[in-house]
Amino acid sequence: MTLPSFCEERFPLRVAFGTSGGPERVTEIVRLSTGFETRNQRHRHSARRYDAGSGLRSLEDLAAVLAFFEARRGRLIGFRFRDPLDWCSGAPGRAVSALDQAIGIGDGQARAFALLKRYGTGEDAYLRPVQKPVAGTVRVAAGGVEVPFALDTATGVVTLDEAPAEGVGVTAGFEFDVPVRFDIDHLAVNIAAFEAGDIPSIPLVEVRP
């Protein structure tokens, strides 16, 4: 049997809500003899890291994570994970709107647009690809009016029924997951220590599916 490199199943949600972590950047810094320094980013996109151990609250949670770990074969198979802080197109606590994020400009021919999320404003804004939208939460508008579309939940590409006219802005709102994998192949758990408050480390790292 050939195993997939990625599974669309989501990590246990009740555990995900209590995890710690966030985006990681890799920046090379060279300090010159003049005292100035040069800085260079090695990767265009950040990679998120989490520790799911902090989300464990009960033996039931632990058993659920153990089963999920075994099903994913440790680091072998990636999966969906809901970031407890950053999981929707708009501000936290606000309902998803089809106007949340600008995802493209119509040219009269193109119908397919990739979902993305903008951080910051102006030319310095960071545009993050969103490849794992949650089915049933995505809304799309062209020129401020919601339009029908088809969604590929595995890639984050929406295909509109009709191509927007030239110059018409295309926007979208959505909830999304982060594609991750376990960053360990050995899940070491001591039940007595866990019941005494010793939480195991269960690292997760973002992947590009």
Results as ranks from 00 to 15, higher is better:
Pro129Glu: 00
Glu24Lys: 14
Glu70Lys: 07
His43Ile: 05
Leu85Met: 12
Ser33His: 06
Leu76Phe: 15
Ser54Asn: 10
Ile184Asp: 05
Arg118Gln: 06
Glu146Gly: 10
Pro164Ala: 00
Asp100Met: 09
Arg49Val: 13
Pro129Val: 00
Pro23Gln: 13
Pro148Gly: 05
Arg111Ile: 07
Val145Ser: 03
Phe194Ala: 05
Val170Ser: 01
Val140Ile: 00
Ala67Pro: 01
Ala64Gly: 06
Pro203Val: 05
Ala16Glu: 05
Phe174Tyr: 15
Phe79Asp: 08
Gly169Phe: 04
Ala102Cys: 12
Glu175Gln: 15
Glu162Pro: 03
Val145Tyr: 01
Thr34Gly: 02
Ala102Gly: 08
Gly173Thr: 11
Arg72Ser: 08
Leu115Phe: 01
Met1Pro: 02
Thr121Phe: 03
Gly156Lys: 01
Leu127Asn: 05
His45Asp: 06
Glu123Leu: 03
Ala67Asp: 09
Ala125Gln: 02
Ala110Pro: 14
Gln131Met: 04
Ala135Lys: 11
Asp107His: 13
Glu175Lys: 15
Gly120Met: 09
Gly122Val: 03
Val178Trp: 13
Val134Pro: 03
Gly104Ile: 08
Phe113Asn: 03
Leu32His: 02
Ser58Thr: 08
Thr121Tyr: 09
Glu9Cys: 13
Arg80Gly: 08
Met1Gln: 07
Gly169His: 04
Ala64Met: 15
Ser33Leu: 02
Arg31Pro: 01
Ile202Asn: 13
Ala112Phe: 01
Phe174Ala: 06
Pro133Gly: 00
Thr171Ile: 09
Phe79Leu: 06
Phe11Val: 04
Gly144Pro: 12
Pro23Glu: 03
Phe81Arg: 09
Met1Val: 09
Asp183Lys: 11
Val158Met: 06
Val180His: 11
Ala125Glu: 04
Glu175Cys: 13
Leu151Lys: 01
Glu8Cys: 09
Val15Phe: 00
Pro203Asn: 01
Arg139Val: 00
Val157Tyr: 05
Thr27Gln: 08
Ser54Trp: 11
Ala135Asp: 14
Ala125Phe: 04
Asp107Ser: 10
Val205His: 12
Gln131Glu: 11
Arg10Glu: 10
